[in-house]
Computed example of a mutant assay.
Amino acid sequence: MKLANKHIFVTGGAKGIGAAIVQDAADEGATVSFIDIDVAAGEKLAAQLNNSGKKAFFAKANVANFEELKSAFNQAVSKFGDVTGVVNNAGVNSHADPVTMTDKEWDDFFAVDMKPVWLTAKLALPAMRKAKGGSIVNICSIHGRLTYPGFFPYGAAKSAVLGLTRNLALDEGKHEIRVNAVSPGYILTDLTKGWLAAESGRTEKANSIQPLGRMGEPNEVAKVVTFLLSDKSTYVSGSDWAVDGGLGARSA
């Protein structure tokens, strides 16, 4: 029970990697609050957790809207007390052209994939500073360091998240608050499975470049996240944990 007596707040927690993080945190003894725009999936997961004797709270909120995010965060605090750990998981993909992408499309994308990492810190840090402790984990991507054509501006956003992670770690260390990033590679979420199914042979091709010969599962990311949220990682801060099966070590 690595997270006993912890209150973890997760963004984008209804499906995929986010849901796996919510589940694993609850399994490790945490009280978990999470938000998402998918109400049906969020309510279903919260009900499953509560019905199994765990403590979970779900609220609908769009991380790009600070008032919605703030309201959901305050509801979580009112229900379960101060947040001791934050996981910034919410995000969207972008396959834009640098010439045709509009200013609004750029702003809308960064409002989901980068800005909320700061906004959740803005909400959680006052109580963490007062308590002299806390952990923030930002879900980044292998694209923060390595990318390939067609992922503009996704790589830029994930690189920015890594930079923000480092600076928050340096700035908040004096309050004994730790900030780290986790960068998944190919993970078998519903989104990934849909992409793989869209073209014959795509799964085999993707697996052929994986050093472990397979893609990862969401719970394999979650286990690293819960470690970083726990008191078993008290001297880990400002780091980027690759959960990519070794893909980032491979040369083209």
Rank of each mutant, 00 (worst) to 15 (best):
M1G: 14
I8N: 01
K15A: 02
A19Y: 07
A20G: 05
E28H: 08
A30M: 15
T31N: 06
V32F: 11
V32Y: 08
S33L: 05
S33F: 05
D38I: 00
A41S: 02
G42A: 00
L45D: 12
L49T: 00
G53N: 06
G53Y: 04
K55V: 09
F57Q: 13
L69Y: 08
S71W: 08
S71C: 14
A72P: 11
N74T: 15
Q75C: 06
G85D: 05
V86K: 12
V92P: 03
N93G: 14
S94G: 12
H95F: 15
D97H: 00
P98N: 06
T100G: 02
T102W: 10
D107I: 08
D108A: 03
V112E: 01
D113Y: 13
V117W: 02
P126K: 15
A127V: 03
A127T: 04
K130D: 03
K132M: 11
G134S: 06
V137A: 06
V137P: 04
N138W: 13
I139P: 02
C140R: 08
H143A: 07
R145G: 12
T147A: 08
Y148R: 03
Y148K: 08
G150W: 00
Y154P: 07
A156Y: 00
K158I: 02
A160P: 04
G163F: 04
T165P: 12
R166S: 04
L170R: 04
E172M: 05
G173I: 10
K174M: 12
H175S: 10
I177M: 07
I177E: 06
N180T: 15
S183M: 10
P184M: 14
L188M: 12
T189Q: 07
L191F: 13
A197Y: 01
A197T: 01
A198G: 14
A198H: 14
E199M: 05
G201T: 05
R202Y: 11
E204W: 12
A206G: 11
A206W: 11
L212N: 08
G213A: 14
R214E: 13
G216F: 11
P218Y: 04
E220N: 15
V224Y: 01
T226N: 07
T226F: 08
T226A: 04
S230G: 11
Y235R: 12
Y235G: 10
V236R: 14
S237D: 06
G238W: 13
G238F: 11
G238E: 07
G238P: 07
D240K: 07
D240E: 10
W241H: 13
A242K: 02
A242D: 04
V243A: 15
G246Y: 14
G246E: 09
